[in-house]
């Protein structure tokens, strides 16, 4: 039951993009087409689950054990950067089709604040390892969900007659705001 609460809360109620403001850059950047949005969503899900597992182990068995929790930020960002590189190399060798699909998004993920943000949130919320993994996966699915909905809206938005000054980013931000308003309707489920 606790896992169900974590999943519903991470996907709908506290959606990582629309209510926590994590990962806005890819949300704005790669949401012009549904296909790229799906690719980015899959890449983020993959890396986020892997990264939160690794950072959790580092927190428990290195940082806490030696009493150096203040190095959290430095340790996490380095681990995530290295992990993304590693995933890229392994994917290229092991599964070329998957690399073809996700490859272009991987370098962008290092500076995606959602990955670091979720890794830190798991520690702040005192989750166990399994809860942390479920939370990371659900957050990433929430990210992909918001990204795909937003991409669908933007594909239609291209055909609309938007006032000149509002074209591009401004109208996209206003649309994201209305989407966030819709997601606020989920508050109270959990």
């Amino acid at each position: 039951m606790i896992y169900l609460t974590i999943i519903i809360s991470a996907i709908f109620v506290n959606n990582i993009v629309l209510s926590q403001f994590l990962g806005i850059c890819p949300f704005m950047g790669v949401s012009k087409k549904i296909n790229t949005a799906l690719g980015m969503g899959a890449a983020v899900t993959f890396v986020m689950v892997l990264a939160s597992m690794v950072t959790y182990l580092i927190q428990k068995y290195i940082l806490v054990k030696f009493g150096i929790e203040f190095l959290q930020t430095i340790a996490y960002i380095l681990v995530i950067a290295a992990l993304v590189q590693l995933v890229e190399i392994v994917l290229k060798k092991v599964s070329p089709p998957l690399y073809q699909a996700l490859g272009v998004y991987l370098p962008l993920i290092t500076t995606n604040c959602a990955i670091l943000g979720v890794a830190i949130l798991i520690i702040q919320k005192n989750f166990s390892m399994l809860e942390g993994i479920v939370f990371a996966a659900a957050s990433a699915i929430g990210f992909a969900f918001a990204l795909v909905i937003f991409a669908g809206i933007r594909e239609h938005l291209d055909l609309m007659d938007v006032p000149k000054g509002m074209r591009g980013t401004p109208i996209a931000l206003v649309v994201a705001g209305i989407l966030a308003l819709a997601f606020m309707g989920f508050a109270g489920i959990v």
């Binding site: 629309l18 209510s19 403001f21 509002m166 980013t169 401004p170 109208i171 996209a172 931000l173 206003v174 994201a176 705001g177 209305i178 966030a180 308003l181 997601f183 606020m184």
Partner: peptide, 11 residues
């Protein structure tokens, strides 16, 4: 709240 941030920045 969250929606206001997007909308104000957009305008």
């Amino acid at each position: 709240l969250a929606p206001g941030a997007f909308i104000v920045l957009g305008y």
